[in-house]
Design a protein around this nucleic acid. Structure first.
Length: 270
DNA sequence: AAATTCTCCTGAAGGC
DNA sequence: TGCCTTCAGGAGAATT
């Protein structure tokens, strides 16, 4: 399930293949993604040259001459670079074709999206409300402490809120809170600045480590070459219900918080 | 305003 | 073998 490190891995992987290349064709085999893929996507994209490939939150941004192709991988999506003539497989919903190769979008659950944004991205409804990037200096303990004022929401839900900070999904929220020894149920307003400093540092470290290892592949994530990431081997609490805590050997607990699976050690995390 | 619930979808896993 | 049920989850929309 792609989170920020997986999206970053995908961006870095596809960039050298498509930067400065001109889009020659667009093939949409299934328009029914999270939102219907625009009927005129082909007309909009043909002839556009790719200026830059970057990321905002979990969106891949393919910046072109007169707008940006925005791709979200949902929770089962991936993009790969492949030969134009390679036959599409099941759930290969779209190709952005260049001279010899294409960017192929694959997404079994179709929670992802592909859209064209011609206006300023910062003003687009999908981006306007987004909080800071977790790896930027704007994401710091002071910011979190300020956002948490007067809010009773559990810290785990809080750090997964994109208006607070983007790109911290369920896996990394669980892992960061374990590393920071904070109980995921704790009210976000009831956490000291000092503890927020620790949490921020762990979020940054864990995301950065995961990027370095090519992301986390639990079931289906593969990079642009179709290869998995290796961060899953580092997971200390995620998916480890009843298994011994790596610190204290007591069993890892699991429960739903805001309808998301949550894993933690009641002894180590307070 | 903030918090919670609903919704989209497929594939994997488990029970019988 | 096969059918059925359950679960996972990003994040905007709808509701409380």
């Amino acid at each position: 399930m792609p989170e920020l490190p997986e999206v970053e891995t995908s961006c870095n992987g596809i960039r050298p293949h498509i930067i400065n290349q001109k889009i020659s064709d667009v093939i949409v085999r299934n328009h029914r993604l999270r939102w219907p893929v625009a009927d005129n996507l082909r007309v909009l994209l043909r002839g556009q040259q790719v200026q830059q490939v970057t990321r905002r939150a979990k969106y891949i941004l393919i910046i072109c001459d007169s707008g940006t192709l925005v791709i979200h991988l949902g929770m089962s999506g991936n993009v790969r670079i492949c030969d134009n003539h390679l036959a599409p497989k099941k759930h290969d919903h779209a190709d952005i074709a260049f001279n010899d190769i294409c960017l192929r979008y694959h997404d079994p659950r179709r929670f992802g999206s592909i859209l064209w944004v011609s206006e300023n991205l910062d003003e687009h409804p999908l981006f306007r409300h987004l909080g800071p990037e977790p790896l930027s200096d704007q994401f710091n303990a002071n910011w979190l402490k300020k956002c948490a004022e007067k809010r009773k929401t559990p810290i785990k839900t809080f750090i997964m809120n994109a208006s607070v900070v983007v790109g911290v999904g369920n896996i990394y929220a669980n892992e960061s809170l374990f590393a920071a020894r904070i109980n995921p149920n704790r009210a976000c307003s009831n956490i000291s600045l000092a503890r927020y400093e620790i949490l921020v540092q762990h979020i940054k470290n864990i995301l950065q480590q995961a990027i370095t290892q090519g992301g986390t592949t639990l079931k289906d994530f593969v990079n642009e070459e179709g290869k998995p990431g290796y961060f899953a081997q580092q997971l200390k609490v995620y998916g480890r219900t009843s298994k011994p805590c790596v610190n204290c050997q007591r069993p890892i607990q699991s429960k739903q918080i805001s309808q998301r699976s949550t894993f933690y050690c009641t002894h180590c995390q307070r």
